[in-house]
């Protein structure tokens, strides 16, 4: 049976992990390759590396980092951040990334999704969506890490992304992100039931029950989290064992 996926997300700045303290088993928590390898060893199903560097030099460092990750880590990984055009995608895939995650650039230029899907296959094209539930009860999509509201609505945009060739949707609820009170399960369920591509849930993980809920109530195919893994609030082996005992198909290493 296809397992539900647990995905730690690492924020990278100038080639170093931003969060990530207190790891006992590894030499340098700042090194994304070492941290990624540790997560892989602990049973993470995939990894996401998000480049939050602004400078040009930092971007080049990130590409070199992607190559080192590909050389050293034997599970799939997605990279995102700073992708503006097809050339950026080409460079990251050539460096060894399995998938790219496109967020703002896809909203600004939806044709980019089609170009990536056509050029490299849908399976490499994850469309990330940051959305916020407003007072009128609608989910509005945001640009630039949640700073700029757009005209786009979550469900319509996710559907359009799928039709343009996205291979997966990574949905972050801005209402739930960082609050640690659980994922946006109602919206996730609507997304998952209306799309024919996998949905990755992001934002809101605080305890192990939240992961059970996101897979059962939210019908998500995968769940992504950052700080609760980085700060050891939840250990991946414990989480996966708990979820398996709750009847959720899990790959245990």
């Amino acid at each position: 049976m296809l397992a539900k996926r647990i995905i730690p997300c690492l924020d990278i700045k100038d080639g170093q992990t931003v969060k990530g303290v207190n790891f006992v088993n590894i030499r340098s928590v700042g090194d994304p390759v070492e941290l990624g390898a540790e997560y892989s060893r602990l049973g993470a199903d995939e990894l996401v590396f998000l480049d939050i560097t602004a400078s040009h030099e930092g971007r080049k460092t990130f590409k070199d980092l992607v190559r080192r990750i590909a050389e050293n880590i034997s599970i799939p990984f997605t990279v995102g951040g700073g992708i503006h055009e097809i050339g950026d995608v080409d460079a990251l895939l050539c460096a060894g990334a399995d998938k790219v995650s496109i967020n703002s650039a896809a909203i600004k230029n939806p044709d980019l999704i089609s170009e990536v899907a056509k050029g490299f296959g849908s399976q490499v094209c994850t469309v990330a969506i940051d959305a916020k539930l407003d007072e009128s009860g609608e989910w509005t999509c945001y640009l630039n890490g949640g700073r700029v509201a757009t005209e786009k609505k979550l469900f319509a945009w996710a559907k359009e992304a799928q039709e343009r060739g996205a291979g997966e949707i990574l949905f972050t609820s801005m209402n739930h992100d960082g609050v640690k009170q659980g994922f946006a399960n109602d919206a996730l369920r609507v997304l998952s039931e209306s799309l024919s591509i996998p949905v990755i849930a992001s934002g809101g993980a605080g305890k192990m029950e939240h992961f059970k809920d996101v897979f059962t109530e939210g019908k998500a195919d995968a769940a992504l989290a950052a700080s609760i893994f980085h700060f050891h609030e939840i250990a991946i082996p414990d989480l996966k064992k708990y979820l398996r005992d709750e009847g959720i198909p899990m790959r245990i290493v």
Binding site: M1, L2, A3, R5, D45, S122, Q123, G167, E168, L195, S196, I197, P198, D221, A222, R251
Partner: peptide, 16 residues
């Protein structure tokens, strides 16, 4: 060919 219980294609992820 997707059926009533499995609608997602591609088959993506870890399977036994």
């Amino acid at each position: 060919v997707p059926n009533e219980s499995i609608i997602k294609v591609p088959h993506m992820g870890w399977n036994t």
